[in-house]
Design a protein around this nucleic acid. Structure first.
Lengths: 254, 254
DNA sequence: CGTAGTCTTGATTTCCGTCAATCGGGGTGG
DNA sequence: CCACCCCGATTGACGGAAATCAAGACTACG
């Protein structure tokens, strides 16, 4: 089954590249801008799996740059029900734009062991004023994130379980490879079924059964730490997935 | 029953005040800034009920300032299922930040007759560069909107029907009055049950039944064009509603 | 070899959607 | 002025989807 050939961005050997790569998709960085981004990554800490990086309700003093690993943003209701709001991948700035709130609206938890650099809010803010192009790019990225959240609203509100799961893998694939999913696409997949369930608003057993149904239909396969989109076309049709919603736009003013 | 005493911001006689009021909550406007905002509102058009202001997939050429009325942003799946993503009230800039995408990701529809002013994208962009404080305020407002969308994700993913409906009215109340809901609070309510259902991911009959159950529990009453929160405390407990998530933060740099 | 976490499966119950019919008010045209 | 009609609210019967509860299997790892 050719284990280990899937790209695993969250286990990258060159974590510092992720941030630059993300910005380079939007603009050509000047040397000063590059230096500034590099300075963010200096004091990276290693966080173990399952450790919370941010706890809901706490004061916001930093944003975090994720250098390696994968994290989830989530909220829990008083009785313990949990809803995952989204994921952070290497190069993502965690806590933006929610740093515009005094207290964290959601918690952030490390799904895999992760490497994060804390950026004090003052340093972050001063970067935004000194480098307006970086501010613009961050805003652009945040706007895209908002669009993704809206698509997830459609998923939770109006799609059934099979559609949700299909959509979930297609979204993940689009986020990782930045392209339209193709048949046989393999994606690294370090997420438990409980995480899938809490992302999609399902119970863990039902998420499991739904995965099985997709496997029986030869749409999707799971193999250890990776997922395979056996029939991308079928998944797209099943989920009413529209790749256009994931296209990243260039920033007009460059 | 004292009809007509509820505030109806979307029927305001002084629509131009809404935009200023919204900004004034974040910063003290200079004369130049005030003039700029005023210039946005010049060529307002009247749109009838049910008319689409923006259609999903169309090119984005304008943002719209909503002067009077109430609009919904929504997406529909190929088979007709509809999910409402959020509402626009007077003073809201419709199509921001989604104007950062080439094509509209969602449609916008007038729920009541509305008055809107189209702002060409170039004019809007030039305003943002000439008046950075206005840009900052808009960004702040957008960030708050994102926080609301995340709370709705929790609602759709993890709350049951009664909790969703209770949450819906509490959110609406918080948005309109900008304060913690109180017992007996009356809010103007021009929304049909179909709109409630499509917002909350429920079927119309089930939304109706759920409303009835809340009425039977003396938590909530509907009376023509207004809703009454009979037992705000009960609704808050039922929905696990946290008013802190609706608090607007002042902008740090003023 | 034992333990903890995850995956898997079954039986049962609950919630919610679907379909269909009725009701009621406000507008409209004859 | 009145009959009609459309839209929205309402209710009931029924079926299906998903949650819950519970138990067991597999795997990685100490």
């Amino acid at each position: 089954m050719d284990i280990g050939t899937a790209p695993q961005p969250w286990l990258s050997d060159a974590p510092w590249a992720a941030l630059e790569a993300k910005f380079s998709r939007y603009l050509a960085l000047s040397d000063a801008e590059r230096d500034c981004l590099a300075s963010w990554q200096a004091p990276a800490r290693v966080m173990p799996r399952r450790r919370d990086l941010v706890r809901e309700g706490n004061d916001v003093a930093c944003v975090y740059l994720l250098c390696r690993g994968i994290v989830s943003r989530y909220r829990v209701l008083p009785d313990g029900r949990r809803q995952i709001l989204g994921f952070g991948l290497p190069g993502d700035v965690i806590g933006f734009p929610s740093c515009s709130l005094a207290r964290a609206a959601a918690s952030v938890c490390c799904i895999t062991e992760s490497e994060v650099a804390a950026i004090p809010l003052e340093q972050f803010a001063s970067t935004l004023t000194r480098f307006p192009r970086i501010a613009a790019a961050l805003f652009w990225i945040a706007a895209r994130e908002t669009a993704l959240a809206q698509e997830r609203l459609v998923t939770l509100g109006r799609r059934g379980a099979e559609e949700r799961v299909a959509y979930f893998f297609l979204e993940l694939c689009a986020l990782l490879h930045k392209g339209r999913p193709r048949d046989g696409e393999r994606i690294a997949f370090p997420l438990t079924q409980e995480i899938i369930a809490d992302t999609l608003g399902l119970s863990t057993p039902h998420a499991n059964r739904t995965l099985r149904r997709l496997r029986d239909q030869r749409l999707l396969a799971l193999d250890g730490q990776e997922a395979i989109l056996l029939d991308a076309r079928g998944l797209i049709a099943l989920a009413s997935f529209d790749p256009a919603h994931f296209a990243a736009m260039p920033i007009p003013g460059l």
